[in-house]
Nucleic acid binder design. Structure first.
Length: 143
RNA sequence: CCAGACGGCCGGAUGGCCGCUUUCGGUCCGGGAUUAGUCCUGGACCGGGGGAGGAAAGUCCGGGCUCCACAGAAACACGGUGCCGGGUAACGCCCGGCGGGGGCGACCCCAGGGAAAGUGCCACAGAAAGCAAACCGCCCGCCGACGCCUCUAGGGGCCCAGGCGGGUAAGGGUGAAAGGGUGCGGUAAGAGCGCACCGCGCGGCCGGUAACGGGCGCGGCACGGCAAACCCCACCGGGAGCAAGACCAAGUAGGAACGGUAGGCCCGCAAGGGCCAGGCGGGUUUCGGCGCCGCCGUUCGGGUGGGUCGCGCGAGGCGUUCGGCGACGAACGUCCCAGAUGAAUGGUCAUCCCUUCGCGUUCGCGCGAAGGACAGAACCCGGCUUAUAGGCCGUCUGGCACU
């Protein structure tokens, strides 16, 4: 079942994702992720929530002033949105909040490379969690 | 053809695939109200339409709109503007003139009211910087060391360093600026002392709506500059801003505590009510008028991730005609043209276009690579300022060549 795509819109949401400390840096973008807890805050503790229970993927975009003026920031956000729209329905994990952070390289990087960056970052974060290790901050060498 | 001046315009094009937002129509699925008919409202899909700029920018002026009860009057304070006439809703904007300056020219530039209302300042240099003075010098008078000449001894004469008194402002020198400039006359030397021209001032005349210009007469020159020093004059300006503001929902709340201060009259058994005084009301005071009510001060607390409206028919765009040198105005016709809110208006690929470079060339061009600016609406208009690759059009000026 294809998960639905939503948007992160408020500052507290972004702060929660950043606090999860699951982050991967690629040349074209930075990806942060956070599993959402079960919608019902009942006593059922850290038991893994089934994907079918909460099928929504939510994505937020952050492009700071460091990237450039308003036109450049708009363009970076739009490229990230296009990449996410193409990749996330297939590769993203349902019930997760993602934040994509634009970099200066987001503007210049070829589209296919940007797509590969997102796939690699998703796989890496998935493997970290799947291996049971604590989510950690990593950096990929530039190809 | 080259160089230049001014004005106007464009701001890559087409297509495929995948999206966003808004609106209209349809289908389907919900929610609410209602006896029902029906109405309100949310979502998905399909189809159609709209979807960034000339500066959207800086937020520097002017307005609309909203709230401050009204935005009233006068004075003061503060701020702004500053040649004249016009345009405009208005402006510090625009147009046309005037004056001054620059350019061979087309044209360009100018913070351009008042310095005989007052105060202040004028560094350095210089004798002297604003009220008349005089450092060097020039000239006149008197005295006159030394020297020279002369004489019969006392003496006389000449020359002159210097001193005293007076005249002068031409020359030197300083400066951004030294009490008009140039020339001729004049004089002991000089000086508007006299004259001519220029400048300046005053008066009236003519032209012009005016700024101002022209010429005439008079005056011998007084009145230096700085107002982007204070200031004076004229005119303009109430304040805050769409996070304005309105409604709905939620909400401990109709905030709390402490201190100070709460007058008089009337109705009423009382609770309470009314009037006057008092206090508060976004520069100050006074007046008019209105609203609110215990008032004032200190401390503490709540809220700041809600929704809808405001929100786009407007000083609106385009076209034609008419008026005007022009800014602009009028009439008629026609069009509806972005409304987001972690913030849409795009992502990607291909082809074409333009520029640069390299290679090839049959000089027509072909192939390859790189690049295509400044920049994103946030309530809306009118301006200004700043940024901007490349390109197009028109008018004009100065050269060169040809006829």
């Amino acid at each position: 079942m294809m998960p639905t795509i939503g948007r992160l819109k408020t500052r507290p949401d972004f702060l929660k994702v950043a606090a999860a400390r699951a982050k991967w840096v690629t040349p074209g973008l930075i990806l942060q992720a956070r599993r959402r807890p079960a919608p019902e805050p009942t006593i059922q503790r850290d038991r893994p929530v089934l994907e079918s229970g909460d099928p929504e993927i939510r994505i937020g975009f952050t492009v700071s002033r460091k990237v450039g003026n308003a036109v450049r920031r708009n363009r970076a956000r739009r490229r990230l949105r296009a990449v996410a729209q193409e990749i996330m329905p297939g590769c993203g994990r349902a019930g997760t909040d993602y934040v994509l952070i634009g970099r200066r390289e987001t503007l210049e990087r070829p589209y296919t490379a940007l797509r590969d960056d997102l796939c690699a970052a998703l796989k890496r974060l998935e493997r970290d969690r799947g291996a049971g290790r604590a989510p950690r901050v990593g950096r990929q060498r530039r190809p």
